[in-house]
Amino acid sequence: MLELRLIQGSLLKKVLEAIKDLVTEANFDCSATGFSLQAMDSSHVALVALLLRSEGFDHYRCDRNLSMGINLNNMSKMLRCAGPEDIITIKGDDGTDTVTFMFESQKQDKISDFEMKLMDIDSEHLGIPDAEYQAIVRMPSAEFARICKDLGSIGDTVVISVTKEGVKFFTRGDVGSANIVCRQNTSVDKPEDSTVIEMNEPVSLTFALRYMNSFTKATTLSEVVTISLSSELPVVVEYKIAEMGYIRFYLAPKIED
């Protein structure tokens, strides 16, 4: 028996919009810890890890660990039928091949049940080792999205370099090149507007902009994005989900041949 009630149902809608283009099918895992997902894109270049902790739900009942194979596009279609203010409850049962999404309006005067078919998905959880990162950049998520969008119109790849001077985003394409530097900038009044760079040593890595631009669909979930970089490791682009958990996108670098 599974029953997860989320007052701020819009969070779940935003989560789906953030990942559905990167990953088409995935297993959602439900345990005492929370509602989670780990999945790779079809090219095995990027990986998304989502956690919505049980404490963040208004009501969380999960009698035993359950894995639900879901087509994310179909789930997104159903969640789009929920109003922006609706409370969303996810209901499931062992041994059934469906999951139900219940949408309640704030005033409780409209209740909708959407039943969706589950699917069998073969997937293995990858072990993500703990890593010390050479540099961690925290910046406004909207600023990062803007940079990825702008550079994406010039080139296909971005070189992200962190030095004492700041974080540099560079691309080159047929029409020319572009270089954007963001310096550390702390805003006491609005910490979410700050750019903070923690650097143990300088690092420079190259990534496909197409994936970076896909990750920025999570911008609506958090005002701040954290980018963790180490040579020879996938970059981690993390959006915290207020008081509930996170979406982390891992992207393998491109390397010089």
Binding site: E124, G127, E256
Partner: peptide, 14 residues
Amino acid sequence: MTRQKSILSFFQKP
């Protein structure tokens, strides 16, 4: 030329 690495070359299957 740059080559795209796979995520599987960093993270292990169980």
